[in-house]
C-alpha cells in the first residue's frame, strides 16, 4: 500500500479510504481476480509474440510433443534471419528518421500556434483553436486517396518526404491542443513581468514559457513520435519500393509471402518493431498518460 501516495488518491485524505469496509476475501473475488484476468488477456499476445519469436520452426507446429506455452530449445535463428537476410534494419532506420522528422516539424509548428492561440489572443483565436481541434477529428482513412493524388503530383511518391509532410496533419492538431492546455497553466503574471522588463514576445516564449512547459513538450513529443511510428495507412499507400518502407508496412507486405508463413521471423519483426515505442513509453509513462488524458479532459 506504500506507493499510494497523495498523487494516486488526491481526493482522499486518509490512507486506504473506505477499503476497511470490505473484507479481504471479498476484495479478492471482486477486485484481484478480475484484474488478474484483465492483465493476462491484455498481455498474452505479447507473451505469445515473444515465445514464437524464439521458437525453432519444429516446435512451432508440433503441439503434441511439448507444451506450446513454453519453448524447449530457444533459438535466435528467426531474429538473425530478420536482421541479416531481410531489409528489416533499413525499415527500422526509415521509420526512425521519418518519425523524428515529423515529430520535430509538428512540435515547432504546434508550439508557435499554441502560444499564439493561447497567449497572444488575436481576434478569432478561439475559433482557430476550435478549428485545430476539429482538424484532429479528421481521420486518415478519408484523406489517404486525395493525399495520394497530391503526393504523386508533387513528385513525393515513394520518398520519405511524402510521410514527413503528411504525418503532421494529425500530429499538429494533437500537439497544439495539448500544448494549449500546458500554456494555459503557466501564470500569466510571469509573462507580464518579463514584458514590463523589456523582453520581446519571442524572448518571453523561448526564455519563460518553453522552459516551464518542458513536461508538456516531452508529452507531446513522445506521443507524436509514437503516433508516427505506428502510422500505417499513409505509409502503405505512399511508399512503393521495399527499401523505403516503414516497419509496420515492411513486416506485413515483405515478410508475408503467400506460399509459407514464416511465423517465427514475423513475430520477431513485430516484437522488435514494438520495442522502441515500448522502451520510450516505459521511461515516460507519466507523460504518456498525461498527454493521453490531457487531450480528452480539455
Amino acid at each position: 500500500m506504500a506507493q499510494i501516495g497523495p498523487k494516486a488518491n488526491p481526493a482522499g485524505g486518509d490512507e486506504g479510504g473506505m477499503t476497511y469496509l470490505q473484507s479481504m476475501p471479498r476484495r479478492v473475488v471482486t477486485i484481484y481476480v478480475p484484474l488478474a484476468v484483465f492483465v493476462i488477456v491484455l498481455l498474452f499476445p505479447f507473451y505469445w509474440m515473444t515465445i514464437t519469436a524464439i521458437k525453432p520452426n519444429v516446435e512451432m507446429t508440433s503441439y503434441d510433443t511439448s507444451s506450446p506455452f513454453w519453448v524447449v530449445h530457444p533459438t535466435l535463428q528467426n531474429i538473425r534471419y530478420l536482421l541479416f537476410e531481410t531489409s528489416y534494419p533499413g525499415w527500422l532506420l526509415n521509420t526512425t528518421i521519418i518519425s523524428i522528422a515529423a515529430t520535430v516539424l509538428s512540435l515547432i509548428a504546434a508550439v508557435l500556434a499554441a502560444y499564439a492561440i493561447e497567449r497572444l489572443r488575436f481576434s478569432g483565436s478561439r475559433q482557430v483553436g476550435l478549428a485545430v481541434f476539429l482538424a484532429y477529428l479528421v481521420p486518415p482513412s478519408i484523406l489517404f486517396i486525395p493525399l495520394s493524388v497530391m503526393v504523386f503530383n508533387l513528385g513525393l511518391y515513394d520518398t520519405p518526404f511524402a510521410l514527413i509532410l503528411t504525418y503532421p496533419t494529425f500530429l499538429v492538431p494533437f500537439c497544439t491542443w495539448l500544448l494549449m492546455g500546458y500554456f494555459r497553466s503557466i501564470p500569466f503574471e510571469l509573462e507580464e513581468c518579463a514584458l514590463i522588463d523589456g523582453a520581446s514576445r519571442w524572448q518571453v516564449l523561448t526564455k519563460i514559457v518553453l522552459p516551464l512547459s518542458v513536461p508538456g513538450l516531452i508529452s507531446a513529443g513522445i506521443f507524436a513520435f509514437t503516433l508516427s511510428w505506428n502510422e500505417f495507412i499513409y505509409a502503405l499507400t505512399f511508399i512503393q519500393s521495399s527499401e523505403n518502407k516503414t516497419v509496420p508496412v515492411g513486416v506485413l507486405t515483405e515478410l508475408v509471402r503467400s506460399d509459407v508463413y514464416e511465423w517465427g521471423s514475423l513475430m520477431a519483426g513485430a516484437l522488435i518493431g514494438s520495442l522502441p515505442v515500448v522502451i520510450l513509453y516505459s521511461f515516460f509513462v507519466e507523460h504518456y498518460v498525461s498527454s493521453m488524458t490531457g487531450a480528452v479532459k480539455e
Binding site: 498481455l43 505469445w48 505506428n230 509496420p248 506485413l252 513485430a270 514494438s274 513509453y281
Partner: peptide, 13 residues
C-alpha cells in the same frame, strides 16, 4: 501496453 505498440504489429500477433 496494447495501445502503445503499433496496431499492425499486434494485429500480426
Amino acid at each position: 501496453l496494447p495501445w502503445v505498440v503499433p496496431t499492425v504489429l499486434s494485429a500480426i500477433a
